[in-house]
Simulated scan of single mutants.
Amino acid sequence: MTEFSVLDLVPVREGGTVGEALSNAAQLARKAEEVGCKRFWVAEHHAMEGIAGGATSVVLAHIGNATSTIRIGSGGIMLPNHTPFQIAEQFGTLDALFPGRVDLGLGRAPGAGPELQRALRKNLHQASEYFPQDVAELRALMTGDVDLPITATPGLGANVEFWMLGSSLFGAQLAARLGMPYAFAAHFAPDHLDAALELYRRDFEPSDALAKPHVMVAMNVFAAETEAEARLLASSQQQSFVALRTGNPGKLPPPIEDYTSTLPAPSRAMLDHLGQAAAIGTPAKVREDIAAFTARTGADEIMLCGSTFDPEARLRSLELTLEACA
C-alpha cells in the first residue's frame, strides 16, 4: 500500500508574515499527523521572501513540538551550504528531542548566486563537488562506523533516517551506491524521473540501513469539492512557479480564476510539463491521477506538495486527498 507524506515550503503569502507562515506550517503538520501521513518535511531555501524554511532544523524543532507521532525531516538540507559536522549536531539534537522521528534528506544543488555564496562564506559550486564525501562523513559522524578525529555531540549514535534527494541522475546513482532511500523532486523537475528511478533500482547496493530500493516521489496535489475550486487553489502556486522561472520570485500571491488562460505560450507549456506530476480536481479525480502516477513510478511513498494562499484550503485539500486514497 502506498504511503503519503507532506512537503511544506513554509510559504509566506502576500500580506502575511514569517510568523504566520510558521504557525500555518505547524497547523498543517498536525493535520498531516491526524489524517495518517507518514512524514512531514521542510525544504531549505535561502534569500526568498516567499519561503520561510531557510533555518530548516529550527523549523523542524517547531514542527516536532507541534506534533507527537509523525516523522519530521528535511526535504532537504542542501549539504554544500553547510559542514557535515554542523548538520550532525543539528540533527543529533533533533533526534534527542524527538527520538525515532527524524529524517535527514540531503540534496546537492546549492541553488545560490554569488550574493548568497558571500553571505554563507562558501564557494558553493566547489562544495558541490565534495558532496559524496560530505555525505559519507556526515553518516560516519552519526554512526561511528569510521574512526574520525572528532565526535559530534549531539550527533554520534543518533537514530536518524538518511535519504538522498534528487532531480537528476546524479542523486539516483549516489543513493544506489550508498544503499539509501531515494526521493525524487518531480513536483518541480520531472524531466529525468523515469530514467532516475530505473537507474536507482538497477544499481542499488544493499546497506545496513536498507536492504532493497525504496522510492518516494513528490507531486503537486490540490483537491477540492469541485474541479473549478481546485484549479483556483492551484493558481497561487502556478503564479509562483511562473514568477520564479521568469526571474521575479516573491511572496505567495492570491489565486486567480482561469489563470493559465492568461499566460503566454511558453509559460503555459512549462506548467503543462509540470502537470505530469500533479493531481488537481475533485477527490475522485485526484485519486485517479495519483493512482496513475504511482503506477508509472512504482513509488513506495508519495510526497504531497502544493501551497495555497488560504492555509485552511490546504488543510482541506490534504484531508480530501487522504480520504479519497484510503
Rank of each mutant, 00 (worst) to 15 (best):
L244C: 05
R245V: 06
R245A: 10
P249C: 09
G250D: 07
G250Y: 08
K251H: 07
L252F: 03
P253V: 09
P254K: 12
P254T: 08
P254V: 09
E257P: 04
D258A: 14
D258Q: 14
D258K: 15
T260D: 10
S261H: 00
L263T: 07
P264W: 01
P264H: 11
P266S: 06
P266V: 09
S267W: 09
R268E: 05
A269C: 00
A269T: 07
M270L: 14
L271N: 13
L271M: 02
D272F: 04
L274T: 02
Q276F: 02
A277S: 12
A278M: 11
A278N: 01
A278I: 00
A279C: 03
A279K: 11
I280L: 07
G281S: 03
T282C: 04
P283F: 00
K285R: 13
V286C: 01
V286W: 05
R287N: 02
E288F: 03
D289F: 08
I290Q: 10
T294L: 07
T294F: 09
R296V: 06
T297N: 10
G298N: 09
E301P: 04
I302L: 08
L304P: 07
C305V: 14
G306S: 14
S307M: 15
F309Q: 11
D310M: 10
D310E: 13
P311W: 10
P311I: 10
E312S: 14
A313M: 12
